[in-house]
Amino acid sequence: MAEQHCIYPDREAVIVAYLYDDIDAVHRVAFETHVATCEPCRTELADLRGVRSTLAQWAAPEARQSHRQSPVVSHQPGWWHAVPVWAQVAAAMLVLGVSASVANLDVRYDRAKGLSVTTGWSKASSAQTPAVAPQTQANAAPWRTDLAAMQKQLHEEMRAQSATLAATSTTPAATAMSDAEFSRRVRLLLDASDEAQRQDFAAKLVQLQKDVYAQQQADLAKLYKAMGVFQTTTRGELASQRQVLSLAVSQR
């Protein structure tokens, strides 16, 4: 290699320092003076600058992250975060059940009619209303009992959690948040950018599909139009041919 012929003292270290502009003035001037007369050093410097320029274009995936909304930078967690998962699920089921009862929701699947969802109001005018209403009322009673029990349970949980939060609010962050919770938050933070990216990509994909579909429709329309012209022309030609044949036959 050409640069092996150069014997500048501590050459490799000086080249790197000069390349990254991390060199004191005295050494800089000395090296620049040397480079002005040393072809191997000039060539190598130019090549290494080219390498750096190429490296600068290598973007890690993190550069694609955008539209971030950090769940970590959320403020005080809502009280529901403190409620156990089982209680949240149970409460959700209760709300769903009670809502369904109030709305007199009726979900049916019939082979002929398919899936049908009706509410008490939509069935009010039907003849079945008197028969259904007492049953709904009878079913609502256990829900109310369960709901009352659940409300009591939730209130107790909330009170307990409030007390815990008050007690821990004076402790250092490093102990106030469990590792698992912190890990979860960091994971959410990292996933948020991916999710935004996925959603963005999905939206673009849908748009692309729409565009392709629209183009297909336009192409088909053109094709049908062209075929219509062709068919009209063909029919005209056939009629002419028939006339010629008829004339030829009659002349025999």
Partner: peptide
């Protein structure tokens, strides 16, 4: 260290990208 978890969240937001890029 004084107990402000929000401050650590800010550090995470500030350094998450560089650390991820480094690791990648």
């Amino acid at each position: 260290i004084g107990g402000d978890a929000e401050s650590f969240n800010q550090l995470v937001l500030r350094w998450e990208r560089p650390i991820y890029a480094l690791a990648y």
